[in-house]
Amino acid sequence: MTTALTIALCILMLLAYIFDITSSKTKIPSVILLLVLGFVVKEISLAFGWNMPHLVPILPVLGTVGLILIVLEGALELELNKEKLPFIVKSMLIALLPMLVLSFSLAAAFSYWGNVDFKNALGNAIPFSVISSAIAIPSARNLSTVNKEFVTYESSFSDIFGVVFFNFVTENDHIGTGTWGHFAGQMLLILAISFVATLALAYFLNNIKHHIKFAPIILIIVLIYFVSKIYHLPALIFILLFGLFLENVDELKHIKFFRKFRPLDFSKEVNKFKELTAEFAFLIRASFFILFGYLLEREEILDGSSIMWAGGITVAIFIIRAIVLKLFKLPLNPLLYVAPRGLITILLFLSIPVTQQIPLASKSMLIQVIILSSLVMMFGLMKTKTNKESPGTAPETAV
């Protein structure tokens, strides 16, 4: 049985790799193929009567580690300088505003038609309002440089804002002045931790001479994230800041303190670290979606009672997104289509406390929104030119 499982895992990962490298040609998001692959594996195992281990507890762990690595991978691709500050602020606002509008609108609908408390309805609505960087970033790989950078910033900020907003709503029974003060304290604390931890990890990365040094750093990053999570700190901010620092330390070389990092030598180590992070992120992301597909039930995908809600939510996602992109004078094509729901949506949905779950926001609705938003992205990108600087996507136009 062990040999068979090992062979199966190797084959599944190789198929995931094929999906990844062919997605630029087929325009089919690899997440859809991975979900289908996982579902087919389950059907085959049932048909042959194979006894599979209990895999449900593994899903949140894989998802959280995948989220960490994906945000880190995205941050390691982003250049940071004064000229890009307006671009970054704009991507932050475009990540935040649609999320807030959709969350409160959907919460009002859940509260009205589900006859539930608005706060609980809001906690259930937030997962549907967050763009999944796990799907958006790989899918933007063949867009123009500026659009790809925008998608990376926007989806990473969306993940961070979504997690912070979700935790704030679900972990506080009552929201008042004291709650906001506590939240401000948490933000200041995570910024302080991020500053110290980033400098320490960057120093280790640049000075450890042992032939194994990248894996321990990734393990420390994951450890810091989970310890911060115990104390309800927005740890994704640390992940983003750490990645941005590594990628942009050469921008700080005019400051005497940062010359100690030897920016030229440091960049070589960062490039190696980026490659390893990308490899790990691929394995974890592929494993997560295959496992999620394996755990899907046919009834959940085809549930007619939730399809109208899922369709309405998907339409609302892209209408709100179109309005916001127009307000900020960004091109609708191709940015409108890159708003998939996925890994972060699943993680937040699974994190809703039992006492705050509402029947209306079902797993079937979640799955259908993920599939529908990915299909919209797929068909939208199919009609988008793939050359790196196609008309209407030059930096001065797109930002």
Rank of each mutant, 00 (worst) to 15 (best):
A281D: 07
K213T: 11
I230S: 07
E247I: 02
A316C: 07
H210G: 10
E269N: 14
E269L: 11
I218A: 01
T198V: 12
L252K: 07
F257S: 10
L201K: 11
I239C: 01
V222E: 05
L246N: 03
I313P: 00
I212P: 01
A200K: 15
T314M: 04
I230H: 10
R285L: 02
I237P: 04
I313M: 06
W309G: 05
I290G: 01
F258C: 06
P263A: 12
F280M: 10
I284Q: 07
L244Y: 07
N206C: 07
V196R: 03
V315N: 04
Y231F: 15
S306Y: 06
I217C: 05
S194K: 05
V315P: 00
I301M: 08
N248P: 01
I221S: 03
V315M: 09
I284H: 14
T314Q: 03
E300K: 12
I193H: 12
F214P: 00
I237T: 09
L283G: 06
L296R: 11
Y225W: 03
L233C: 14
K256M: 09
E247P: 02
I239T: 05
F273G: 04
F280Y: 14
E297V: 11
I301Q: 00
K229C: 01
H232T: 14
I284N: 07
M308T: 08
E299V: 08
G304K: 13
K209V: 06
T198K: 08
I239K: 01
T277F: 06
